[in-house]
């Protein structure tokens, strides 16, 4: 009976490691076949990378909501209930300097910390950091305790208060579990940029730069070396993957 079990997670890497077709013989008469796709997409998350965002607050226009709308459309989290209970993966925040009165506007989403408090406090390990630095929720083991929401300094997480259907295939979400910005992980895995960045570029503002923080040649790394930038709540030393310039 035992040998008949087709797969176990420890075989994961072996099973899907290459681009070629892999055939596994598990028991006499039982064969599982797995077909790899292109080498690039089969590779998946790369531990050598650390994905990040740089947001230039000067270029972010106060009335523009393009990133928020794009995220809603892409990931399908538009809420229809009470405003306080609706999910908000990304939001536009307006800041007014208390001493000078200067106003600025910027988007806030999951900051994809290197030391994420939400991952530390999660009792089941549902809140996790992918090896390329993206912080996600495994909704299969999330019990909906909301401790991560208590622990997040950025209010980046939302609890799904109502039953949901008609989700996007790549953005499953459901009642009783917690969710947040995924940095459009499904797009990153396909070699594309997050929907918010794409939408921001399309408006011509170009306030958002996406890229690999570990690669000194990437656009984002060059910009970070050239201009001053800050992390939100840098007093907490969480080393977020999202940075803000001209704040």
């Amino acid at each position: 009976m035992q040998d008949e079990r087709p797969l176990d997670p420890s075989r994961r890497n072996f099973f899907k490691s290459g681009a070629a077709a892999v055939t596994l013989t598990l028991a006499p008469g039982v064969t599982v076949m797995a077909f790899g796709g292109t080498a690039a997409s089969a590779q998946g998350a790369d531990a050598g990378k650390r994905w990040g965002l740089l947001i230039d607050v000067n270029k972010c226009s106060k009335d523009c909501e393009a990133c928020v709308t794009a995220c809603k459309d892409e990931n399908g989290w538009e809420g229809k209930g009470k405003a306080e209970q609706n999910a908000q993966w990304i939001r536009k925040v307006t800041l007014k300097d208390k001493s000078t009165g200067r106003e600025s506007s910027l988007p806030v989403m999951c900051q994809h910390c290197e030391q994420p408090p939400c991952v530390d406090v999660c009792p089941t390990g549902a809140s996790f950091k992918r090896k390329d630095g993206i912080v996600l929720v495994d909704k299969h083991i999330c019990i909906g305790c909301r401790y991560c929401m208590m622990a997040c300094p950025f209010k980046a997480r939302s609890f799904v208060h109502e039953p949901v259907n008609n989700q996007k295939t790549f953005a499953p979400r459901g009642k009783g579990t917690v969710e947040s910005c995924t940095l459009c992980v499904h797009r990153i895995d396909a070699g594309r940029i997050p929907a918010c960045v794409e939408a921001c570029d399309a408006t011509g503002n170009g306030a958002m730069t996406f890229g690999d923080l570990n690669d000194p040649e990437s656009e984002i790394s060059k910009a970070l070396t050239a201009y001053p930038s800050v992390a939100l709540r840098d007093d907490l030393d969480l080393n977020p993957g999202v940075r803000y310039a001209n704040l």
Binding site: Q88, K96, K155
Partner: peptide
């Protein structure tokens, strides 16, 4: 207190 020194407003009750 995500933005010390600023008055904060947003659609998400910041």
């Amino acid at each position: 207190d995500t933005f010390p020194g600023y008055e904060v407003t947003s659609s998400f009750f910041d």
